[in-house]
Simulated assay, not measured.
Amino acid sequence: MKKINDIIDLFKINIIKTLKEENLDFNIDFDVTIPEDSSFGDISTNVSLKLSSYLKKPPREIAEIITKKFDRSLLYVSKIEIAGPGFINFYLDDTWIIKIGNMILRNGVDILKKDRGESYLLHLISDDLLNENNINRARAYAYALLNILRLKGNKVYLTETIKKDKLLGLGTFNHIINIFPYGHLRNLCYNTKGEIVEVGNISLQNGKNRFNENIKGLIGEKRFNFWALSKTAKRNISIPLGSAVINTTDNPYFFVSYVYERANNINSILEREGYKIGDNLEDMSFNLVEGKKLIFQILDLEKVMEEAIRFKEPYKLFNYLYNFCVNFYEYNKKLFIREFEEKNILGNMYILNVIKVFVSEILSVLTVKVFDM
């Protein structure tokens, strides 16, 4: 398996197989999803609710029939629960840690179902008279959106003009997104074709004092880009001077970059001591539920990227990555790796290796590199 959607399709195929075996197949459309709350399982389906009106039976009764006949060993399911009005929730066993982890190690974050290959023009419209910080924030937004769209299989072009220029060839794209830095729409002197996004203001603050210097020049491009994506495009951003220039967890760039560094450092030390990561489940065990949770959280990426495109909002991906790292810090609190048996050491090394690659790849999509702390 190379894509997250391959996993979803595998469960859907086997649910349909179970329905056919029980003469319950009405060729209905049903959902197999990744629940937002992990207490509802790792994968969930509403198939019983969809079948209820056809069978004239309560959804929970249908769910019981399905769960009794479903071949959980084939899909490495450790537990199945029926929840609420009749949702079926699947809990994945440790085999899936390797399956999901290997997807990342072999393909990076190129693990998404490709869109139909729509063509997009991202048109950044700037003005020499505008605040340079706001222009730079709009650029960060545009490049992050470009990366997200391309990762989902779309053809994307980005151009930047000043307001007096005319852009030719507007009819050749499926989508045109005009991106304006804060304050530019008020001075717009011509009509545009396509969607309009006005990216909010960004400023550097020290108490009540606001600085007009080039923020990117003061704190570096990588930190600036990450701050620029740390809120929804329309919201203004006020960067605290203290958090912007020092390595503290109040700085979102450091908060995320540290996860990469921590995972990389632990594994580098252990490898020098002779531990070697494999991909054979027999050689590893996974003793920390927090580590497993991080691997299964990767399955949320498909939905996050779809929402980022639907709302033209790279912040969706930023927020997902930030929350992923919040969960890493919980995992890190219990990572007393010197106290673990060898199989657990190797299992956690494997998880850390996946985390390292995953965080690095997502940071690259958000136009930030992890190596310059």
Rank of each mutant, 00 (worst) to 15 (best):
Asp6Asn: 13
Asn14Pro: 04
Ile15Thr: 11
Glu22Ser: 08
Asn27Trp: 00
Ile43Arg: 01
Thr45Ala: 04
Leu49Asp: 09
Leu51Tyr: 05
Ser53Lys: 11
Ile66His: 07
Ile80Met: 12
Pro85Asp: 12
Ile98Gly: 07
Ile98His: 03
Asn102Lys: 14
Asn102Cys: 12
Ile104Asn: 03
Ile104Val: 15
Arg106Tyr: 09
Lys113Ala: 14
Lys114Asp: 08
Glu118His: 06
Leu124Phe: 06
Ser126Tyr: 08
Asp127Trp: 05
Leu130His: 08
Asn131Lys: 12
Tyr141Asp: 07
Ala142Arg: 09
Leu151Gln: 11
Lys155His: 10
Leu158Thr: 10
Leu168Pro: 12
Thr172Arg: 13
Asn174Tyr: 03
Leu185Val: 10
Leu185Ala: 01
Arg186Leu: 11
Lys193Glu: 14
Gly194Ile: 02
Asn201Pro: 01
Gly217Glu: 09
Glu221Arg: 13
Arg223Ala: 14
Phe226Trp: 03
Lys231Ser: 10
Lys234Leu: 11
Lys234Val: 14
Asn236Asp: 15
Ser238Gly: 12
Pro240His: 09
Val245Glu: 03
Ile246Thr: 11
Asn251Gln: 03
Glu261Leu: 14
Asn265Trp: 06
Ile266Leu: 08
Asn267Ile: 06
Arg272Cys: 00
Asn280Asp: 15
Leu281Thr: 01
Glu282Met: 08
Asn287Ser: 13
Val289Gln: 14
Glu290Phe: 12
Glu290Trp: 11
Lys292Thr: 04
Lys293Leu: 15
Gln297Phe: 02
Ile298Thr: 00
Leu301Trp: 06
Lys303Leu: 11
Glu306Gln: 08
Glu307Ile: 11
Tyr315Val: 03
Tyr315Ser: 05
Asn319Pro: 00
Asn323Ile: 06
Glu330His: 13
Arg338Asp: 14
Phe340Glu: 03
Phe340Arg: 05
Glu342Ser: 10
Glu361Leu: 04
Ile362Leu: 12
Val370Arg: 05
